[in-house]
Design a protein around this nucleic acid. Structure first.
Lengths: 209, 209
DNA sequence: ATATTTGAACTGACTGGTCAGTGCAAAAAC
DNA sequence: GTTTTTGCACTGACCAGTCAGTTCAAATAT
């Protein structure tokens, strides 16, 4: 009966095949897009029969939607954890932002395919899972907005900043820089990329030397 | 006899239908993605028979590739123009960057569908038009890189900045902020969005008041 | 002027193939 | 003995690309 035996989502056999299907689907869809990816391909890459896909998920779209929720859950948890860790260590909001940039980079480093797929689908309209995406997007951006707002409240950030827009711009900065890193100069280190973005964030761009 | 009467590429009938097909394809593909968009749909929206699509373009993919080239051509021209204008007016490289941000926003404001589609396809791998995308991406980013490099050379920017990465991050910042603006708070003015991004660029985020 | 020809541009029915989703009996796992 | 997975044949919808035929404006002939 749906088990969920101990804590959350771990150890049933069913959960294991679902995981395999997520992993197969995420890379294929990132490479080719949702419509160009066939259920047969997903099943094959997961090493599973086609029937199993439909035993575990109601449809191709549902598989994809649950995949999205799954991935964004991981991301937001990681961002939140980074922000809280700096707070515990007595860092300011700038440090929190910086830690979140790093957490974002680490996430993209580990799950590049998911990130790719997320970006590709985020601004589409007229799609079945549009509402899922909206929810899931807001979850992630809200974490950044929260830190910005707290920073404005305690005087660390200018009260003239536009919180939602700045949050979106920051997310975009990290997202695009990281995807470029992975796609076009994958030999660079994470620290390197992080340093460049930190500099940009802290306005240490103008001024020579 | 082949006409092309006066100068180049403007007023033939063929050019007009191609334009109609571009316009139809760009919105449909932005909404649904390339694979989910059918040639019949494109033809119908353009008010043209399906055969006409194939009379004008070798295939669905070729139509898409030419559409990409067409759009990115407009964007780079606009960015270059903005940079040159500030140079003529005696502005520094920071002004050039700021003008390019505005030019980017104006472009996205005018062609949101194209931008959407460009972002969605840019980081895909294993696709037929992969090489076209690489070329076309480099064209756009190169304009920003050029300004950054000139700024480093003449001492306006720190020589510690990482030119390609910073360029990518800036492009990402504008892209994502603008798409968010169009998708989630379309009532805001361009000036408003521009001001927020300017502030972020110039590091006027930290420090209250 | 008027008739005729030419050919680029366009049309839309048709074809061959692909793919999401189904159904089910037998095997394996737990 | 119940849940999950397998393997595979099948269906019906959908879709990229083709092609024989039509349209019409401009060129040429009369």
């Amino acid at each position: 009966m749906e088990s969920s035996s101990a804590a959350s989502g771990g150890s049933t056999r069913r959960e294991a095949t679902r995981q395999k299907l997520y992993e197969a689907a995420v890379t294929l869809i990132a490479e080719q897009g949702f419509s160009a990816t066939t259920v047969d391909e997903i099943a094959e890459r997961a090493g599973v029969a086609k029937g199993t896909v439909y035993y575990n998920f109601a449809s191709k779209s549902v598989l994809f939607e649950e995949l999205l929720r799954h991935g964004v859950g991981l991301l937001t948890a990681s961002l939140r954890e980074a922000a809280e860790r700096t707070a515990r260590d007595g860092g300011g909001k700038v440090d929190a932002l910086d830690a979140m940039i790093r957490a974002g980079l680490v996430f993209i480093d580990r799950y590049p395919a998911f990130t790719q797929l997320y970006v590709a689908e985020l601004w589409r309209t007229n799609r079945a899972w549009q509402s899922t995406l909206m929810v899931v997007r807001q979850e992630a951006v809200a974490v950044v907005e929260g830190v910005l707002r707290e920073g404005v409240d305690n005087g660390e950030f200018s009260d003239e900043i536009d919180v939602p827009l700045t949050a979106a711009a920051l997310v975009g900065m990290v997202l695009v820089a990281a995807l470029d890193w992975k796609s076009f100069q994958p030999e660079r280190s994470l620290d390197d990329v992080h340093a460049a973005l930190s500099r940009l964030l802290q306005g240490r761009v103008s001024g020579s030397r």
